[in-house]
Design a protein around this nucleic acid. Structure first.
Lengths: 246, 246
DNA sequence: TTCGCGGGTTGATCCTGATCAAGGCGTGGG
DNA sequence: CCCACGCCTTGATCAGGATCAACCCGCGAA
């Protein structure tokens, strides 16, 4: 809490190139983390774990996109987590995965076996504090997401998702999202639908509508350009300050 | 994590009669908590804090119901947290409340001023671990809730809410929800609507429908009796094991 | 080259839940 | 006693997304 959230830049000489657990780049701690880490790669579409499976590692996303999702018996699915590079995956102290985890694109993880990681948490309270921080952030994000799912129109949902992705991608680059900048949508229409509680047809239609209304420009299917970020924000229905201050 | 979640019964001689932060009833820790605690009461409907306000305490619900909610400029609101007795309120390390907090009924809190509480967390890692545990639980609950909001029908939403409330009330009494038992709905139709992302009319209609179909019995507006819990569970759309194992 | 397939768009129609509206019940205050 | 108000129910109608269906485009494999 009195611990600043370390960002990529100030962490650029850190052997773990993503901020998830890199609390303050203390060399001793890093050396220990270094010793228990390993990398794993997955292909797009590949499931990492199913809900209910044993999950004996925690990890941090190096490249690619992973998603957490829940599926009902009849096949309806709702995405409940979207992990971009530098995001943390897994739950220290919890052996069983409560959701399906899927590689939504080609994916590389930096993994830590759970037991040694937990042992290290015991010795290094700072890591525990950092994890509490991160979990609170996730909880805030989940609750923003609940507002989107419960009360927003399809158009507002799409605008909200675009805003969130733009903000998260910008945050990785240490900037705020800028009018006129363009970014790559890392999700298919179907994944967007699973994120937003819509059907893919509705997603497609609303994206087209935002394009028609010049809120966004599309280059190909995935490259999004936002002429005026304020205009997009206004479409989200959120008040001007844009949700969480972060 | 290697810390069992302490329940009310094993904590019955504990001066703090609710389990939120009572990690293991260590007498030293409790004495310290005891020294910084105080009680506050609120009337039904009274706001505790608004989103964006300074919030200089954390607390645990003793009696009554509190809710966390988000409101859009045009008045649409979504409940994002429902706090029953023994639930924890507030975020160590975060001075600013991100949501509106409201007393949904007459409410008594057991409060701890944030600074001393955080200081104590520093000295007692067990409390930090407990808070991480609790936050992970809240995150799981939020994600179950996202499935409800994003993908369930109105009828499934109502059944899910009734199940959740029955389970949480039963958990306070250390039992599983039982067929034939009845419980008090602690929410108005409007609050149920805010919880589920519906209108109050739809809530009313679906409750009536469940009653008509003998899934539940109503005594008055708020007393619910569930003749067969399996039948209610089947209405939620969840698979038989009922979501999270907890 | 052709085919099949994954991903995407668009149209027509349907249906669930929102909206608008009226009224019932119980309770507390004048 | 009556009235007003909070809470809830029910009805009629509307509309936003879901559903069903057709088709496009680009790409990799045969």
């Amino acid at each position: 809490m009195n611990q600043p959230i370390v960002d990529l830049k100030s962490c650029s000489n850190c052997p773990i190139r993503h901020r998830a657990v890199c609390a303050k780049c203390d060399t001793d701690e890093l050396k220990q983390l270094e010793e228990i880490k390993y990398y794993r790669s997955y292909q797009a579409g590949q499931p990492l774990v199913w809900a209910g499976d044993q999950m004996d590692f925690v990890a941090s996303v190096v490249t690619g996109i992973a998603t957490l999702s829940q599926t009902m018996e009849d096949g309806r699915t709702q995405m409940v987590g979207l992990l971009l590079p530098s995001d943390f995956l897994g739950r220290p102290g919890r052996a069983i995965a409560p959701y399906d985890v899927t590689a939504n694109s080609d994916l590389t993880l930096c993994c830590f076996r759970r037991k040694p990681f937990e042992a290290m948490m015991e010795k290094t309270p700072r890591i525990g504090n950092r994890l509490l921080e991160m979990t609170l952030d996730e909880l805030d994000a989940a609750r923003q997401w609940m507002l989107i799912l419960g009360r927003k129109t399809a158009r507002e949902k799409i605008a909200s998702l675009l805003t969130i992705i733009a903000q998260r991608e910008a945050a990785l680059r240490q900037t705020a999202p800028k009018s006129g900048a363009s970014f790559e949508l890392p999700l298919t229409r179907e994944s967007m639908a699973d994120y937003l509680g819509l059907t893919l047809e509705t997603v497609s239609r609303q994206v087209s509508a935002l394009k028609r209304d010049h809120v966004i420009e599309l280059h190909g299917k995935r490259q999004i350009m936002v002429p005026d970020f304020e205009v997009l924000m206004a479409e989200t229905g959120d008040d001007a300050d844009g949700g969480l201050p972060v």
